Measured scan of single mutants.
Amino acid sequence: MAAGGDHGSPDSYRSPLASRYASPEMCFVFSDRYKFRTWRQLWLWLAEAEQTLGLPITDEQIQEMKSNLENIDFKMAAEEEKRLRHDVMAHVHTFGHCCPKAAGIIHLGATSCYVGDNTDLIILRNALDLLLPKLARVISRLADFAKERASLPTLGFTHFQPAQLTTVGKRCCLWIQDLCMDLQNLKRVRDDLRFRGVKGTTGTQASFLQLFEGDDHKVEQLDKMVTEKAGFKRAFIITGQTYTRKVDIEVLSVLASLGASVHKICTDIRLLANLKEMEEPFEKQQIGSSAMPYKRNPMRSERCCSLARHLMTLVMDPLQTASVQWFERTLDDSANRRICLAEAFLTADTILNTLQNISEGLVVYPKVIERRIRQELPFMATENIIMAMVKAGGSRQDCHEKIRVLSQQAASVVKQEGGDNDLIERIQVDAYFSPIHSQLDHLLDPSSFTGRASQQVQRFLEEEVYPLLKPYESVMKVKAELCL
């Protein structure tokens, strides 16, 4: 049975990233139509530049190519590739079939990587351009969430054990800070992308030097003109047959890092959902379990974690691919890159769409948070109580021993009897502590235990987050809708 299948058929496997999760716009960027249309555009740009620099290419040939950029006979191309065992030459023939007058000058002087690699770089750039505003929107939604809850005390956790208090907004800023680093890295790697350009079979530009009869300047002009037509500021000066596969490492490393950030955020949300302090959106008709109707599973956060793990592992592909590119190139890269580049971007696209949807509907339960604080705060307040007693004339050592005994009794009630923490009640009825009984409410005010959390939130948002989001103001209103 021949390899390949009808990918629109229910009898043929289709990647869930495309069929179930990723956005239509990201799927289109990695589609065959987008790819092969870009090949034709690159052939047109090459012909236009070659004509401008004096090669015998007519206006009629150029116009014929322009008129057929979208006229792609995919069936013919597939048949040609089956016959020739070469995808680029299959599309040269297919393009030439609908451009008979231009057929002889299509791909003039070029090698397969002229269309293959340059198209990949265009796709990487455009895919990054799709991700950047999506990530900015996630940051914006979380920034709104953090600002609104900047002063809401909550129990902090280290080692997932109760620690000092923080605020809900401050905790959210930990998430935002990681995503801001990801946004900066995505922008950097996007701006650092260079075009492969017009380089020939081993990167020496020998074929173009021959076409222009040894004119170095025209060869350099050709490279520059096509690079500018493709919208790049610069091209690699040095290439082998391909652009260095280190570029793929750079791009997928940034995406993998984004995956790590999203995994951490969504894990926190899942843990908070278990504590009943916070939940992701839950639709009115949504079913959490087929057997347990009360369940409210954090399905979206779980999906993000599941896909983020996949995204983090994909960076190993370009690392290994770059390491086995012998001399000017081997074909070890080809099949692998067809999979890992598309999957990385479709996965990143999915987790950003999902995280935006989550961040637009996060639900906080202040009463649950308050109750958990009441359970733990008495123990945390013991040092403040000791200091207040010393100020009232008591002995630190005597007070410490009193607190120690009462704390152990209260802990026994919590752990052995399943009761509430009654340390404060014990202190309130103990005559030894009568000098500070009137101060206990103040000493137990949760806001006095959150330090500068709310001020940190305000400063972080104003100095770091809002300036970073400013270039994306025009796209901030787009909502994230999930079908599944």
Rank of each mutant, 00 (worst) to 15 (best):
H93R: 07
F449L: 06
R171W: 05
I369H: 02
F160Q: 00
D349A: 12
A206I: 06
S112R: 02
I373Q: 04
Q409E: 11
F157T: 04
R85Y: 12
L252K: 02
M387V: 06
S359C: 13
R234N: 02
A90M: 01
L174V: 14
L165A: 05
D191M: 11
H91A: 09
L406F: 14
F95S: 05
I424P: 14
R459T: 12
T204S: 11
T201Y: 04
G156N: 03
R372A: 08
F157C: 09
L314Y: 14
R196I: 06
K391T: 15
L46S: 05
P293H: 08
A411W: 06
P162T: 03
L423F: 14
E376W: 03
R85N: 03
S438C: 09
V251M: 03
T167G: 01
S289M: 04
D422N: 11
R83M: 09
K470T: 14
A335E: 01
G197D: 04
Q439D: 15
Q41M: 14
D268Y: 02
M278S: 05
L209E: 07
F327V: 12
T201V: 11
L258N: 09
Y365L: 06
I386Y: 05
D349I: 06
L440N: 15
W43I: 05
M292K: 04
V29C: 15
E464T: 14
K35D: 04
S395I: 03
A344T: 04
E417V: 08
V92M: 05
M65A: 13
G394P: 13
R404H: 06
V168K: 00
R149K: 09
F195T: 09
K284C: 05
Q428L: 12
K276P: 01
M181E: 12
D248N: 06
P378V: 11
R372L: 04
C180F: 12
E462M: 15
L461K: 07
Q458E: 14
T382Q: 06
D317Q: 14
K218R: 11
M65D: 04
W43F: 12
R20C: 04
D32R: 06
K82C: 14
Q458A: 13
D182F: 03
M76C: 13
L135E: 12
H310V: 11
T227Y: 14
V168M: 08
C113W: 00
L84P: 04
I106T: 05
P471N: 12
A392E: 10
R329K: 08
T313S: 14
T321R: 02
I424S: 11
A77D: 15
D223I: 00
Q409P: 03
K134N: 13
L211V: 13
C266Y: 04
V475R: 13
T330S: 12
Y466V: 14
S323Y: 04
V414P: 10
Q286R: 01
S447V: 14
E50V: 08
Q458R: 13
I436D: 04
T267V: 06
I238G: 06
E283Q: 15
K66S: 07
N421M: 04
T321I: 12
C304V: 07
I237V: 12
M89N: 06
I62A: 05
H310F: 05
T330L: 08
E302W: 00
L155E: 01
L84D: 13
A2G: 07
F379Q: 01
G5L: 10
N126F: 11
I176Q: 06
G231D: 13
D420Q: 12
C266G: 08
R137I: 09
D216W: 15
Q184D: 09
L142T: 04
L341K: 15
L84E: 11
V364Y: 01
P133L: 10
R426N: 05
P56E: 07
V88R: 00
W326G: 04
A348M: 12
A102Q: 06
E360H: 07
K233T: 04
D349M: 07
T450G: 05
A47F: 06
A273S: 12
T242H: 14
G109A: 06
L132D: 11
K402Y: 08
R137K: 07
I105W: 10
A18R: 15
L108G: 04
E464A: 11
R83A: 10
E343R: 05
E277H: 12
A78K: 05
A3R: 11
S334R: 03
K75Q: 12
L307Y: 02
A388D: 04
P133G: 07
L311P: 00
C483D: 10
S290E: 00
F345G: 08
C483G: 13
A77E: 09
A453V: 09
D268L: 00
H97R: 11
F345S: 12
G361F: 05
V226R: 03
M387C: 06
S19W: 15
I358G: 06
R329Y: 00
Q285D: 04
D117M: 03
T201H: 07
T350Q: 14
Y294A: 05
A2R: 12
V457P: 05
L55E: 08
H437R: 07
M476Y: 13
L275Y: 02
I386A: 06
R137L: 12
L186A: 12
S151Y: 10
Q221G: 13
W39Q: 13
A260Y: 06
Q177D: 11
T227N: 08
F282Q: 00
I105M: 13
Q397M: 13
H263G: 06
I62R: 02
Q210E: 15
S454P: 13
S207D: 02
Y34W: 11
V189L: 15
V429A: 00
C180Q: 06
A163R: 01
L128K: 15
N421P: 10
N297R: 03
L84N: 13
R83H: 04
E360A: 15
F236D: 04
S12E: 15
T204M: 04
G104M: 12
R33L: 10
P24S: 11
V88T: 09
P133I: 15
N185I: 09
Q221S: 10
I339Q: 12
G4A: 13
Q458C: 10
Y294H: 02
L155N: 04
V457D: 07
V168C: 02
R270H: 14
V251P: 02
P24T: 12
E401D: 08
K402H: 03
A344E: 04
I369E: 05
R14A: 09
T94V: 15
Q61T: 07
W175A: 15
A273M: 05
Y243R: 06
S140C: 15
C483W: 13
Q184G: 11
K479E: 15
L482R: 11
D192R: 14
E213D: 05
F30L: 10
A388K: 03
E417Y: 13
F460E: 07
T154F: 01
L461P: 03
N353K: 08
P10H: 12
E228W: 15
I105E: 12
S289A: 01
E425L: 12
A235N: 08
E60N: 08
S438W: 15
C27V: 14
R85K: 08
V465Y: 04
M181I: 12
V368P: 02
A136S: 07
A150S: 11
L255V: 08
A260T: 11
E148I: 09
C27D: 14
A453E: 02
E60Y: 10
L258D: 01
L272P: 00
E48L: 10
R372P: 10
T239D: 07
E250N: 09
S112M: 01
C305E: 07
L482S: 12
Q356L: 15
A206L: 09
D420G: 07
I287A: 10
T227I: 06
Y365S: 13
E343W: 05
E280G: 03
S447R: 12
I373N: 11
E277Q: 06
D317T: 08
K284D: 10
L193D: 04
V29W: 14
I403R: 05
H217S: 14
Y114W: 15
A411E: 10
E425W: 13
I351G: 03
V92K: 02
T382N: 15
N384W: 06
Y472R: 10
A410I: 01
S412L: 10
S23H: 08
P318S: 07
V29I: 04
K295H: 09
G419R: 10
I237F: 07
V413C: 08
K218Q: 06
V168I: 07
R40S: 02
